[in-house]
Design a protein around this nucleic acid. Structure first.
Ligand SMILES: [Mn+2]
Ligand SMILES: [Mn+2]
Ligand SMILES: [Zn+2]
Ligand SMILES: [Zn+2]
Lengths: 144, 144
DNA sequence: CTGTTATTTAGAATGATTAAAAATGAAGGC
DNA sequence: GCCTTCATTTTTAATCATTCTAAATAACAG
């Protein structure tokens, strides 16, 4: 499927892990973050583990989980869940949703139309303040 | 939070499990389905198990999972997932999304504005045919 | 450089869900 | 109603992604 361009897609492929208060800089975290930037295919923790091991052969799976959690908690990475499958991870910080091709399992970013707001198409009850919005689609792609 | 009325919300509280080809009618399935209709609070499988046991004290948890899976596969019930928490189950078949109150954990149905279509606010790539759409919000509710 | 603490690591534990296999029962034909 | 067949239920064990534990290591503030 054709990839849509976006600000985040144009981000440098080897941007260093931003210095954020409360997030100690370790080579494991840098490498996990780099790995997510280099191939934006929404890998699972296990897939990230396989990739990072090429650079850091002694890293453990638990550390990959720890790093991903730290990155997610600091909002440098988003966690994407389809049904009860393994979580996937996405470094695109622009507001977007996800589409999964049911025949390949691959996950793609989908962007929200410019200037569109949640409340424009959803009946939000009085007094609710939406903090996180998840839009996950699944379906087929023509020809493939 | 105030419940929004909908066609499905007005459905009889004790509608029998519809006869569907390929779905054999058992008292376990009927009771699981009834339980979902009676209290539309998006219970987990474990919660359904606790409720159904009052009527069918010998039912097993595996059977509750089996029944829920059968109902979901036959599109009589929807499965709702927030992050990696236990799946929840919803008998509302009208197209809708879900909102979770982060302070109580409770899940509410949210309806899509009338006449609004996915493609109206999402940039769908060429040739994709959306088969399932999941809209899950989390946030806070005023006063509570 | 040193001390303090967060992080990493290997391994064990967790918990929701699924699978296996034997027992049960729903539905269809007679 | 009775029989046959095959889906479903039940109990139990297995799976598997993720989290926890405790000891070893390494950021980084002073
Ligand atoms: Mn977290
Ligand atoms: Mn299913
Ligand atoms: Zn993404
Ligand atoms: Zn619902």
């Amino acid at each position: 499927m054709k990839q849509t361009k976006s600000i985040a897609t144009d981000k440098k492929l080897n941007a260093p892990l931003p210095v954020v208060s409360g997030l100690r800089l370790t080579k494991q975290r840098q490498e996990v973050y780099q790995t997510l930037l280099e191939k934006r295919d929404h890998p699972t923790a296990g897939e990230v583990f396989k990739r990072v091991r090429k650079k850091l052969p002694t890293i453990s799976l638990a550390t990959v989980y720890n790093c991903l959690e730290a990155l997610v908690d600091h909002r440098l990475v988003r966690q994407v869940n389809f049904e009860r499958k393994s979580s996937r991870f996405c470094p695109n910080l622009v507001e977007h949703g996800h589409f999964q091709d049911t025949s390949t399992g691959k996950v793609y970013d989908i962007t929200i139309k410019d200037g569109v707001d949640l409340a424009d198409f959803i009946n939000l009850p009085e007094g609710v303040c939406v903090q996180e919005a998840e839009i996950n689609l699944r379906g087929a792609v023509a020809d493939s």
